[in-house]
């Protein structure tokens, strides 16, 4: 039943094989609370997928499942067509899934280079290879056109919100991530810095990196995303190319789960219809 949501989309997702990341029937319960209920979602390679939904819809729960913070209660995660187990952040990292958390997970007391290589320091003769790390960090930032940072040796605590976001993203890119997951990347940013970050997301797409971005801000979503997926009360109620959606429809899906157009009480059955709009 809920598979219908996805079977409708592969044709639109670009024909280059299956999706990069495939979720099937992902369920997560915390005691009596069911945070995710049989979520099926495909994230195609090289595209920007926006995950939207109201507070408590399960967006953060879903990305934490994919990034190894906790295991799903039920369901299958497949990566490049193969089923995989993601138990720890390290597992996700090894697959090529990098997550940029809302709180950015940076150490304010360390500088940009140290943060970008945290947990993956380069060594020569068992000692830190600062010169190579600094060069690589600079190159990565330059590749992403992050030019607002004066020195890669300044502590991250002295950076602006947009710059911190850039550092967190650059860290993911530097490790050859194939999928970058971003949780509310623009939530705390001003106008120009939001533009910076959206620009950065575009460049990730141009480099063939898939992006799964959670956002509350539909302006940003429509500006940056190739595809959209809507969560409502732990269920994926709709997903498809962004061209099939407009703000009004998306708002309706977010707030009501699309119940006004639903024929059955299930909510997932109509995903097919919506994707074909």
């Amino acid at each position: 039943m809920s598979i219908a949501t996805d079977t409708s989309t592969p044709g639109l997702a670009g024909g280059a094989g299956g999706p990069l990341l495939g979720l099937r029937g992902i369920t997560k319960t915390f005691g009596a609370v069911q945070a995710l209920n049989g979520v099926d979602l495909d994230v195609p390679a090289g595209q920007i997928t926006a995950l939207v939904g109201d507070n408590g819809a399960g967006k953060s729960t879903l990305i934490k499942t994919v990034s190894g913070i906790w295991a799903p209660s039920d369901g299958v995660i497949s990566w490049e067509g193969r089923p995989v187990e993601v138990h720890t952040p390290r597992d996700a990292d090894d697959l090529g899934i990098a997550t940029v958390y809302q709180d950015l997970a940076l150490c304010d007391n360390l500088d940009i280079v140290q943060n970008m290589f945290l947990g993956h320091e380069l060594l020569t003769r068992r000692l830190l290879d600062e010169a190579t790390m600094e060069k690589t960090a600079k190159q990565t930032l330059a590749d992403l056109s992050v030019t607002t940072v004066q020195s890669v040796r300044q502590p991250v605590g002295s950076l602006s919100g947009g710059q911190r976001q850039s550092v967190a993203v650059a860290r993911a890119v530097m490790r050859d991530a194939k999928l970058v997951i971003m949780d509310e990347p623009t939530a705390a940013l001003g106008v120009s810095q939001t533009a910076q970050v959206l620009d950065l997301i575009h460049r990730l797409g141009e480099r063939g990196i898939a992006v799964l971005v959670i956002s509350h801000n539909l302006t940003d979503v429509f500006e940056v995303a190739d595809r959209i997926a809507v969560l409502y009360l732990g269920r994926l109620v709709s997903s498809g190319p962004i061209a099939d959606y407009d703000t009004q429809r998306t708002v309706e899906l977010i707030t009501t789960g699309g119940s006004s157009t639903r024929s059955d009480g299930n909510g997932t059955g109509n995903g097919t219809a919506e994707s074909k709009d």
Binding site: S160, G161, T186, A188, L189, G190, V191, S192, Q193, T194, S215, H216, N217, L218, T219, D220, F222, E223, I242, A243, D244, Y245, D246, T247, T250, V251, I254, T255
Partner: peptide, 18 residues
């Protein structure tokens, strides 16, 4: 840092071209 952009209230998102 400027003002935070309009929050994510679905109603005030400008119309994108779908």
């Amino acid at each position: 840092t400027q003002q935070t952009p309009p929050p994510a209230t679905p109603t005030d998102g400008p119309e994108p071209s779908p």
